[in-house]
Structures are given as structure tokens and as C-alpha cells.
Design a protein around this nucleic acid. Structure first.
Lengths: 156, 156
DNA sequence: CGGTCTTTGTAAGCTATACTAACAATCTGA
DNA sequence: TCAGATTGTTAGTATAGCTTACAAAGACCG
């Protein structure tokens, strides 16, 4: 395995700025950094599985909502239809899910997992568990609840 | 202005899953959603300025750390060198910063803002203020501090 | 009923981000 | 001195997110 380049971990204190103070007081900046860190660890954890965050989320949501339409998926993942398409396409190409015309509304495509998709999701969930463990290990249970609550206020 | 497609805001409660419970209990999922929401609002706020989150962060960091090298920037932004290159290239193309060979270590490129870069950053900081206002409006001051503290544990 | 507006999926094209691999120039330390 | 590390760079890949445009189907209203 080729040596991976380490991404450094230093952000020393620094003289502030007149107008809105230091960049480290910007909530958005911390969200970006945290997201990046989570993204990176996720990618490592899932290196062998060939699945991205979004793809796992999509599989999971389809499993939880059988016959969901692509629009429904977009809404739950907060993405537009075009981006959702791209993700569904990739999952379909991998053979993890299928589109079937909905009979109640023939504009819609009802999504459902294939057997392979169900297996992939099972494996993915085990990997997620590891990933979540890494993420949660730095918090108490109360803090986890709190963090989720605070984050929910942003995206809900 | 063309009508923008709304990204929906519904995530109703749903039957759980046997192994690790519902997706809504996954911290990583919430971070992704929150990041997405922040990203989207940022993009709206900065539509006229033609600057992305990363680009603003980079400008800001260069302003705070005159003569910083690209590696230093990578470290502070938690990105690899190649990705940093791309961002610095774009900012250089916009005329917001320049590379100059460092004399202390001639491998390095010392980055510094141009006059245009300083102006752009000033404008950007005002926009950031608005953006942060939107973000912080849902929290008390104490909660903001707490959120930053929790997020820092993830990325530090 | 018919016409109009909306919803849904789709395709094409653009940009930014993030990564790897490889290379050259330079620095560092044994 | 010379082997190894650091730094910037280029090239190539994949993903994500967006816009615009279009067709098919549904919903609504007079």
C-alpha cells in the first residue's frame, strides 16, 4: 500500500481581524472542517466497499421506504432531482437497486433494493457502526444527543 | 430570475432498522445534512461575489498568515496539497493573491493577497457576517459556544 | 370536457472539490 | 556527500451539486 499523505492537525491561535474576529469563531468554518474530517474517515472505512456516504444514505433510505420515488429520496437527502439521479444511476449500475414504474402515479419511479443491494447495505451498516464509533468516541452519550439536536436545528 | 427549485424539508419519523437503528440516530448523517444546508445558504449569500467557501477560507487564512506557504494553507484547511493547488490557482486567476518564491526555503511559495484580494476579502467578510447571522439565529450564545466546542473535537 | 399548470424523471453540460500517482527542485540530517 | 523528506506541480479520476431544457403524466379549474 502506498504511503498516505497525512493531513495535518494544527490550527494555532492567531491574531484576530478587526471586523468579525477570527475565523475560528465562525460556526460555518467549524462545520466545514468537521464535515471534512468525517468525510475522510468515512472514505477510509469504506475503501473496500466502494460506496460513498451519499450512496449508503440512499440505500438506507430506500430500504426504510420501500417503493419510494426519486423525489422522495431527494427530499430526505436534501438534494435536487438531478443530483439524486446521478446517485441512483450509480447504485443501479452497481446492481444494488432497481427502478420500477409506480402504478399509482406513472410519472414516478418506485425504487427498491435488489438482493445484492440488501447485502451491500448490511455490510455497509457494519462499517457505519465502526465509523460512528470513531465519531462518537469523543463524546458522552448526553453530548451525542445534544450535538444531534443542535445540528438538526440547522438542517430541519 | 428563474424560479428556484425548493429543496424540501421533511424527514418524518420512520420505522427503525434492526442492527443500528434509524438513520436519524447516525451522527454522521446529521453532519452531512447540516453541512449541506450551510453550503447551500452560503452559495446563495455569495452568488454575486463569485467566491466559494473554500476560497474565502483560503483568502482569510492568507490574510491572517502573511507569506504562508501552500503547505501551511493545506494544513490549516485540512486538505491535501493538490486540492490546495486548485484553490490557489483559482484565486490567483481572479487576481486575488500572488505566489512569490520564499527566500528562506526556495521550495516554498509564499502567498500574499493583492489589493484586489484584500478588497474581496472585506466584502466577503460582510457577507459571511450575514451568513453567520442566519446560522446563529437558531441558537443562544451559549449554544453557539457549545456547538463550536463539540465540532472542534471532531476536526482537531 | 379541454386546456393550463405542476410534478416527475431524464439528459447534457458546467464547476468545484478531493483524491492518487508521478516528477523535479530543494532542503535536511546522518 | 548522499539518501530521504518536503514542497510545489501536473495530470487524471470520481463525486457532488447546480442549471437548463424537455417529455410524460397528473391535477385543477372553468
Amino acid at each position: 500500500m502506498p504511503k498516505k499523505e497525512a493531513i495535518a492537525i494544527t490550527t494555532p491561535h492567531v491574531a484576530g481581524d478587526e471586523d468579525i474576529g477570527e475565523i475560528r469563531n465562525i460556526v460555518g468554518f467549524h462545520i466545514r472542517l468537521a464535515h471534512g474530517a468525517v468525510y475522510r474517515h468515512f472514505t477510509e472505512t469504506f475503501a473496500d466497499l466502494d460506496l460513498t456516504q451519499k450512496q449508503v444514505s440512499a440505500l438506507w433510505l430506500v430500504a426504510d421506504h420501500p417503493e419510494i420515488a426519486q423525489t422522495g429520496l431527494s427530499q430526505r437527502m436534501r438534494m435536487d432531482r438531478a443530483t439524486t439521479m446521478a446517485i441512483v444511476n450509480r447504485l443501479e449500475a452497481k446492481g444494488y437497486l432497481v427502478r420500477r414504474k409506480s402504478r399509482s402515479d406513472r410519472r414516478k419511479q418506485a425504487l427498491s433494493l435488489t438482493e445484492g443491494g440488501r447485502r451491500a447495505l448490511s455490510t455497509a451498516k457494519r462499517a457505519i457502526q465502526q465509523h460512528e464509533q470513531w465519531l462518537k468516541s469523543r463524546f458522552s452519550e448526553r453530548e451525542v444527543t445534544q450535538l444531534i439536536e443542535l445540528l438538526s436545528r440547522i438542517h430541519e
